[in-house]
Amino acid sequence: MAKIILNLNRNQGQREKESLTKDGKILPAWFLTLPVHLRSLVEKGIGIEMDGIEEIRLRIGRPLVFRSREAELTIDPAGWPTAELSQGVVITRADLDRTLQNLSQGSLYAWEDEFKNGFLTLPGGHRVGLVGRGVLDKGSLKTLKDISGLNFRIGHEVLGCADEVMPYLFRGRQVLHTLIISPPQCGKTTLLRDMVRQFSDGMRTLRFNGVNVGLVDERSEIAGMYLGEPQFAIGLRTDVLDACPKALGMMMLIRSMSPAVIATDEIGKMEDIEALTQVLQAGVSVVTTVHGDCYEDICKRPVLRDLLDWQFFERIVVLSRREGAGTLEAILDGKTRERVKKIC
């Protein structure tokens, strides 16, 4: 039934922003964190543009793996790409240590919180997930040591990917409370980012002038903040609370930044719901996302079910991967639960 697929191809602007110039060559920041011999293999086998690659995985004693939307591949020691993972170049402890040294700029102390949370953000907004041995302090995780695996998640910024849904998210000049429901890796963060940008910058076609947007980016995924600078286009009037718990961040933004819209990713905890009700009382619009396959799936979860029963959200955007990442399944009215956009 769904035939609209949001355009999730990365735009040139992001490529230029994330890149560093080295010897006249433009290289992405994530590429420069790899050890030199792996870089030459990647450059020879796949090329640094890496269109369509979503993840790069380094696991000690196992092959280097690239994952695109459809397939996985590796590079053999001669630099040829192959789908046979067992033939891939094997990652050593030295490779991982060198990558970590590059990632942390030789300053592990500066990324303690990130290690504790299990990820780092790179210039360009890409994220690197980490696994290793947990170090506990009084029962809670203090940090990770003996890092054994890294997952580079290549960030996607697609300006204009929210164009299809934006006309349905207003009542007059009021932004409607909106929930994006989507399974993992279907483009919900990419969609949310572009929605934030458009709310913030305004849309000439919809005669919307743009409003202050408060963004609580708990996992540094939406704005991709790196040393205080957003790595993605998030709009002229957007204030970002980076790496801050959602519930706390929403309250802080309301008190201090007078936003008209608050955006955040992946709600689901009880405290998030309490914060959302306070946001509602402050007359601020909320745009957020949740993991889920469909509307019915969300209705089965106790905390989210309550929110839907209260008819908190006025618009519900459902994404899937049915016809590729970013398939727009439906835009529902939160009160009547009827489709407000016909998708043929």
């Binding site: 942390s104 700029q105 030789g106 300053s107 102390y109 500066a110 303690e112």
Partner: peptide, 12 residues
């Protein structure tokens, strides 16, 4: 720089 700002070494 290290204690209060956690600045990475090149910048610190």
């Amino acid at each position: 720089e290290i204690n209060y700002i956690s600045t990475p070494l090149p910048l610190a």
